[in-house]
Design a protein around this nucleic acid. Sequence first.
DNA 1: ACAGTAATTGGCTATTTTGCCAAATAGCCA
DNA 2: TGGCTATTTGGCAAAATAGCCAATTACTGT
Lengths: 92, 92
Amino acid sequence: MTADARYEHMAMIMKAMAHPTRLFILDKLNEKEHCVCELQEMIGADMSTVSKHLSVLKNAGIIDNRKQNNMVFYSLLCPCVLDFYQCIVKIK
Amino acid sequence: MTADARYEHMAMIMKAMAHPTRLFILDKLNEKEHCVCELQEMIGADMSTVSKHLSVLKNAGIIDNRKQNNMVFYSLLCPCVLDFYQCIVKIK
DNA sequence: ACAGTAATTGGCTATTTTGCCAAATAGCCA
DNA sequence: TGGCTATTTGGCAAAATAGCCAATTACTGT
């Protein structure tokens, strides 16, 4: 993997996280898995909007999902992404 | 600071980092400070483009600068932002 | 099969981001 | 002052992103 490709890959993952709603979602999934409707309730946006946020995180490889009955539960694959929070609070 | 404001703030900082060129810049500044012209040489883009990338990082509070003669040297304020790299390489 | 709930997808518009060029600013040296 | 280099800023067009609505898919229970 070239250096360029590595920066592209990292940027893709960071871009996936770089949204207030998606950071909120990651925080919630760090506690336990949630279905889309639970997250929608907490966020208050349209369900399609929440679903699209989730697919951004899934495409980046940060979260995964499983189907149960007619619901889809999402879970956090890499809890380490949240370690970043400690660094960020030190900024400014 | 409300939870919403915290997510906004974190997203702003992550968005500032979420670009291949800006991640490259942070990597270089982690070794030592650099002037804009040195970074431009390494990156190969227009100097105005590099300057704008730098101002995005500066506005986010991640880097700082100092003037020396007619050059501007940039330096990394929060090396901890690079700790994130170790987490990202584990993804996918 | 039918109705109901959960989720995703397509389409659309508004907003933001990106990166170039050109112009403006600032500091150096002769 | 004038010319040179380094940097920033404004403006613009292309591309990406966000979030809503409507339509579709999928699974449940009757």
